[in-house]
Design a protein around this nucleic acid. Structure first.
Lengths: 325, 325
DNA sequence: CTGTTAGCGCTTTCAT
DNA sequence: ATGAAAGCGCTAACAG
């Protein structure tokens, strides 16, 4: 039978209160502590999380809500978050909403029921539910209101950096290719600052921004390229899109990177610490995870934290400094 | 303030017992049920999972223990498991052991403390802890003993299939390149049945099997290829290795697939439903996840299930029917 | 500094 | 069929 606190108390010849104090690292007399610890070891006692949760309403769990974990960026982010949390003795519920607002709602309800201490969310749907859940909440990549904490990569700098890199490679006619959703989010800055930088540097550019969910992407890209035949440098909203663009280019008989340069966004790699899939603006995933967790736990602990964390991006390329095509 | 069962009972004018019965779908008089349901809706009552867990020792949570979630196969598997569980109203703890036995042990302890109802594990370390944990357990890709349930892809068929495909492509001199660990596991059958099939078909072959953790892989592969210059068809333990082999081949000036054919294992894709990264033996990830969850929940429910589930694999190639190089 | 005790919200007998 | 009551294992308030 599983040992309870009472068993430990009896064996150690103390009251349950003292056992509880030892467990929770409060101050007790040295002799008491050693006797309790001894008993704990002998009985292989482990506190019952559910009893504690019932009593305290704190559970050392955090929910991570993502739109799709298929996306390598999200997957890597999820893993980083999990390990940051584990390091602080927190557990993580992985909630995969599939970009479905209904599912997201279900999850919020589910995790409230499970008394998570807080939520980290990459969400492109409504915020009200998060607010109303009254739970500490950190948003990734999306700005809501002043008082919602969020952490994001520096998408603006990324957009500028892409222009810079493209120009370094002697491109004359740039393009942005991406997809977007109605709801505002930080990734829109990739396009916005790409355009701002193009204007500042007085370089010709065109934009293809498609409303999601994406359909007939290849056809649209083809038409876009037909309409603007001079394009020799392309910045895409993410690495997935970059790969798609590379595909289309190849089918059109244009060679990457000799004829056209392509830069993605995210920093996807095939294997850990391996080459990037395409030239790309790399998001500091691990850092973003760490920051999110730190902020969330700080809020949970009742501290005040910066509402806004913007993390630097970098240019990354595979060993050839060229997209694998 | 959050409503409790007592509040509901009072509002409905019944005892808490009846509320509990309604919640748990037991039989109650029709009028009682409707009054309770009404009160539940009005008060927005949600049962407290922790109180219930304390009382019943069942928690509707399952732990998934993986060696590394960076590996795309594991990542996809994790997602599938999560969604199968969610469909059955179960939550999942994601436990990322990093192939570290110590971390694995910690996790087991952690999840026992959290009263998970069962464990699904891809583990290459000791089993004793799982056994001793006395929790329903489903092993992926690894056979322990007769009474431990496991589900796996048909690695044997995969090994044979690789030989078959390679011969179809007129290869004359095959090779297996892989890594291995001391502990036995199902993936060793990839090599074993590759060899068996080679022998049966009387085709020349060589083997490079490296002890993990892998170091200086490229050098070893180079030396291996130097030592066996005639090799024109390679089967690797997984897609990662296939990519590495493609790299090495390219650096040696050998062209894939014109000079050498390469077939991996797993079925990694860059994007969901997109082309495979390399020609490969595809594991039915979603099916494996479904089967694991079904088996585990069956055991939890006290039913008896097949201890051994072997799921079919298939040959898969990118649209060019050639590895992207 | 420490033992005792009252619940946390739920399920589950036990009467009724 | 259902209300009353015990108690799951823990924490925290209180009294000493």
């Amino acid at each position: 039978m599983k040992a309870t606190m009472k068993d430990v108390a009896k064996m150690a010849g103390v009251g349950v209160g003292s056992v509880s104090r030892v467990i929770n690292g409060e101050h007790v007399k040295e002799t008491t502590r050693t006797r309790v610890e001894e008993a704990i070891k002998v009985l292989d006692y482990q506190p019952d999380i559910y009893a504690r949760g019932l009593k305290t309403n704190r559970t050392n769990t955090v929910a991570l809500i993502l739109p799709s974990v298929w996306h390598p960026f999200f997957a890597e982010f999820a893993l980083s978050v999990e390990s940051c949390l584990a390091a602080q003795n927190y557990k993580m519920y992985l909630c995969n909403s599939n970009g479905n607002a209904e599912k997201e709602r279900e999850y919020i309800q589910m995790v409230q029921q499970n008394k998570v201490d807080g939520i980290i969310g990459i969400t492109y749907s409504d915020i009200d539910q998060y607010i109303s859940s009254n739970l500490p909440f950190v948003s990734i990549d999306r700005y809501f209101t002043e008082d919602v904490i969020y952490v994001t990569a520096d998408n603006a700098a990324g957009g500028r950096l892409a222009v810079d890199e493209l120009l370094k490679r002697r491109c004359r006619h740039l393009a942005y290719i991406g997809g977007y959703q109605e709801t505002p989010n930080e990734t829109k800055n990739r396009r916005k600052y790409f355009e701002i930088e193009c204007n500042a540097r007085q370089v010709q550019y065109d934009v293809l921004d498609m409303l999601e969910p994406l359909t007939q992407v290849n056809r649209h890209i083809n038409e876009f390229l037909d309409a603007h035949p001079g394009i020799d440098g392309i910045f895409t909203i993410n690495d997935d899109m970059a790969l798609t663009v590379c595909d289309v280019l190849q089918q059109r008989g244009q060679h990457v990177p000799d004829d056209v340069q392509v830069i993605g966004f995210d920093g996807q790699r095939i294997k850990e610490q391996d080459d990037f899939l395409v030239s790309t603006i790399v998001q500091p995933v691990a850092l973003m995870a760490q920051k999110s967790v730190d902020s969330l736990l700080a809020v949970i602990a009742g501290q005040t934290v910066d509402n806004r964390t913007v993390l630097p991006v970098a240019f990354g390329a595979s060993w050839t400094t060229q997209p694998i095509q």
